[in-house]
Design a protein around this nucleic acid. Structure first.
Lengths: 352, 352
DNA sequence: TTGTACGCGTTATCAG
DNA sequence: CTGATAACGCGTACAA
């Protein structure tokens, strides 16, 4: 029923050479093998459709051709793009990618790290949620190469691909200020993660610089696994801010999902975006451009982050002991149409 | 610098037993080992933080603890959810998941199949784009277990988790008809894949049943890798249909992305959805609910598809030779607010 | 240039 | 119950 897989021994027999010779030819070793045998072995391998067993090879050489990626959830478009970038450079380096959804659960994260170590994986890209670094530290000492993305991970021998959240927050708020806004509210889910805090800090930076009073609306709910969580939070926070007596002319949301919720709630209440209230998001996921109006947002380069993280990791794996360095990706503003310019002469314009 | 990994031999030495005993204890073999040794071995393994080398185990047992998943692109939210479901059941079965983005390229698909075979992977879930089944056939004969999703794959020994696209097309069109629409246009990207053709057939079924004339607008462009491709196509096809002289009161798009494009273009032209023209999508991705108006659409159960495919695969892997069977997932309508009811008395209503 | 023999870490078989 | 030994498929000293 099941065909038995063909090994180098089988081929050796057919080609009337030793398994060693077959190995040398088929693994492209630089060990000298005569032209004639080379061709004979290759031809036969081709004929019998030889599929090498990487397990044997890897066991012998203590290598691995797969890398691990641990992220909160693949269902989040941001991480989808990160992975997409990683997978691309992995393939270019003849490696496969194991995906691990930590679901923000430190225990799951640990389980995954353990698993990939058992698989003898030598490279890991991780957006770590855990506080406890002992296991990871241990694995690094055992030869695991680690690149941290998104979440900071200060640890010896760990490269980081970071993103300047604070500057991102600054840029978003600054844009609104430049467009003439003075009452600018910042809506955010719980400020419990450093990245979130930093965006907020950037917003405050810009406000203080312009001598404006920050208006903060923070969700008090803990995380939830619903993928529409941020959307719902956006709606709630809008209701909260509008009934609080504040009269913002602009709202800055801590991520795009939440901005979608903001726009949705405003529209539902008959408030026009951007004519009545302007909205700026954070992330730059593609769906923002499909909204009406298209969302102005601060772009966090997801795909590039993946590619860079992959590049850093493979540099380490290749042992090119170029000095380890961190990368700090810079934010940029994607200007679409959810922000109204209040400074222009056309204050009366109510076009539609 | 690098600590040397600890093997069962090291533990055997420390516990003054044979490696065989250590193996029997640590791999939870049902082979009898005295209680005393059991504990001694376990304690030491714990102490030295033993991490088993799965490569050795797998090589010996000709097993694998990883499965492969080949899909067009992880960046597509539909497939993100499929993978999410797969990964969940894989983890429950102590397996890891290798992700492969075929990018709709048959050659890439083949490369990936070859790669996972080299890794001795025994299970594959695939949304195949290739016409040529010879390689896959070969791998199955070599012991690969295959479950096909999304795209049909008629081949001996391959389970399929399908989706009734035709019924989905029928349901979507039927809904519009029931709401009193008569001029219903169907907008689709190139009808080159069976799934696309089937949705269209379902639409035609419903139209003919109601003695209505189908109105088809098909994109003639070939696939593109831009992830906003369908969105742009939706916009283009709307312009095409509106300038063609047709006056549809409703538009049925072959997927949600395209429906987003449709709504966007209509809004841009000052045409109100659903008051002037109703829109129905296909897929049921979450972003549809964030639009204004929220998109009425035909739900294709992505997450469930992933879980089911995973379940089927592990049933096969466990050799529970329950008879192989295909699963055909049924569509359902998610009624939101992008469709106007034309039958009601409130024909005059122009509410907003 | 080619072949022989051993080891990577694990488990299965067989003898004690 | 326990231990020695031979594999799994491959790469590589070492010998020829």
């Amino acid at each position: 029923m099941l065909k038995k897989p063909i090994t180098i021994h089988d081929i050796a027999e057919m080609a009337k050479v030793s398994p060693a010779t077959v190995s040398r030819v088929l693994s492209n070793s630089d060990y000298p093998v005569s032209k004639g045998l080379q061709e004979r072995v290759r031809r036969i391998a081709e004929e019998v459709n030889y599929i090498p067993n990487m397990l044997g090879k890897q066991l012998k050489k203590n290598e691995s051709t797969t890398i691990g990626v641990i992220i909160p959830s693949i269902v989040n478009p941001f991480y989808s793009f990160v992975i997409f970038g990683i997978e691309e450079v992995a393939r270019a380096n003849h490696h496969t990618v194991i995906i691990c959804n930590s679901l923000q659960d430190p225990e799951l994260e640990e389980e995954y790290i353990r698993t990939i170590m058992e698989q003898q994986v030598k490279g890991l890209i991780i957006s770590s949620i855990s506080e406890d670094r002992t296991l990871l530290r241990n694995c690094i000492d055992l030869g695991l190469n680690v690149v941290a993305i998104d979440q900071a991970l200060e640890e010896e021998n760990v490269c980081q691909v970071k993103f300047d959240h604070r500057k991102g927050g600054y840029i978003g708020a600054k844009h609104l200020i430049e467009q003439g806004h003075r009452q600018i509210a910042y809506l955010t889910s719980k400020l419990d993660r450093p990245s979130r805090k930093n965006i907020y800090r950037g917003y405050v930076d810009a406000m203080q610089e312009a001598k404006l009073e920050p208006i903060l609306a923070e969700s008090d709910e803990q995380r939830s696994d619903a993928d529409t969580y941020d959307f719902d939070t956006g709606r709630k926070l809008v209701r909260k801010i509008l009934t609080s007596g504040e009269q913002p002319t602009a709202i800055f949301a801590c991520n795009d999902m939440m901005a979608f919720g903001v726009i949705n709630e405003l529209s539902s209440q008959g408030i026009n975006v951007p004519d009545d209230i302007s909205v700026v998001g954070f992330d730059g996921i593609d769906f923002g451009m499909m909204l009406h109006p298209p969302l102005t947002t601060v772009k966090q380069p997801d795909y590039d982050m993946g590619k860079l993280a992959g590049k850093l990791l493979f540099d380490k794996l290749k042992g090119e002991d170029a000095p380890f360095y961190d990368v700090v990706l810079q934010p940029s503003l994607i200007e679409r149409r959810s922000v109204r310019n209040l400074t222009a002469i056309n204050t009366l314009e109510c076009a539609r």
